[in-house]
Simulated assay, not measured.
Amino acid sequence: MEEWSSPDDKIFKKILTNGHGHLKPHDESVVRLRVQDCPESLSSFNNKDLVVGDSEGELGRAVDVCVSTMLLNEIAQFTITIGLEDITAVIELVEFSFSGFIYQWSARKKMDLAIRHKEKGARHFNDRNHAEAAYRFTKAIKILCSIPIAVESKAELVDDVPRTDLRALTSKLYNNLSSCYFRENVYDLVSPLCQKVLEFEPNNVKALYKLGVAYKMDRDFDRALDALSKVIKIEPQNKACEHHLAEVRDELKKANAKMDDIMRKMFVGSINK
């Protein structure tokens, strides 16, 4: 009886009946499952058409992982660990449509899929479900990053997609992802994501503001001053930025006064010798 477990050991699989063929479902594959011997939380996946990659929540994503390991007509028992709970189910892959490998997809298909995930992420963000929103934005970024663009290429189109559109969408996704961590006060992740945005749009006010606040919270006041000053230059009436900028200037003033005091004492000490 063949067994398998995920790299994080949160999913354990025991094959009960071998499937056939060599293709397995992956993102965008439409599958139909028979789910048995399971708790109520998994019954919603039984005998319905599901699109791999569209399932919501930690349990839904776990089911996607389970399905992506299966061959057609395979029956397997899965144990899924969610938090401190172990959820067990017997799943049969009844049918699925193969949508091609991701490297075969056109830039247009990848971009459309990334937009779908972005829209899902935006809905979760508005509901303050930041973990789910971050997952969707990250997934969309990974899809866009899989579009091959030759470094030396000067072409304005990738397949039929303008490169400017790809850059704009990628920038927006990094910005959205940084907002998820900004709301959760995870400033060590906010900074690198905002810097990614600024590589695409050097004067992006939202990214500059979040970056400035992140630097301030990390007590890197010189960099905070630089970022927040740029925001005020672009948006002179930005009250939130004015507040943070005043605090940064106050902290720098204190630091400079402290340094002046240290230097004065060092100088006096050297004279006394």
Rank of each mutant, 00 (worst) to 15 (best):
E242M: 07
G57Q: 00
N46V: 11
Q77S: 03
D165M: 05
W105A: 10
P236E: 02
Q36C: 12
V190F: 05
A207V: 07
T17C: 14
E247Q: 09
M111A: 02
E74Q: 15
D112T: 00
L50D: 08
Q36I: 15
G21H: 03
V67K: 08
R219D: 07
G60T: 03
E242W: 13
I102V: 05
P162T: 00
H117A: 05
E156I: 07
R223Y: 03
D220C: 10
I82C: 02
V158I: 00
K230N: 08
L211S: 12
E28G: 08
S146K: 01
V90C: 10
A168M: 10
E251C: 15
F12D: 11
D54W: 12
R264L: 09
S5W: 10
A114C: 00
V63K: 13
F12V: 13
E184K: 05
A62K: 06
F12C: 11
A255K: 12
D220I: 09
A89C: 09
G212M: 02
G83P: 00
D188G: 07
N46F: 07
E74V: 06
P39N: 10
A122F: 11
F45V: 15
F101R: 13
C66D: 03
H26P: 10
A150T: 07
H26C: 09
R34K: 12
F125S: 01
K154I: 08
A257Y: 15
T69G: 13
E132C: 04
L144S: 06
D261R: 13
R34I: 14
H243L: 13
V65K: 08
Y135P: 05
I149N: 01
V151T: 12
L16C: 06
A114G: 00
S106A: 02
M1K: 15
D54S: 03
A224W: 03
V94F: 03
N185E: 11
P25T: 13
Q36G: 13
C241Y: 04
L225N: 13
E56V: 01
P25G: 14
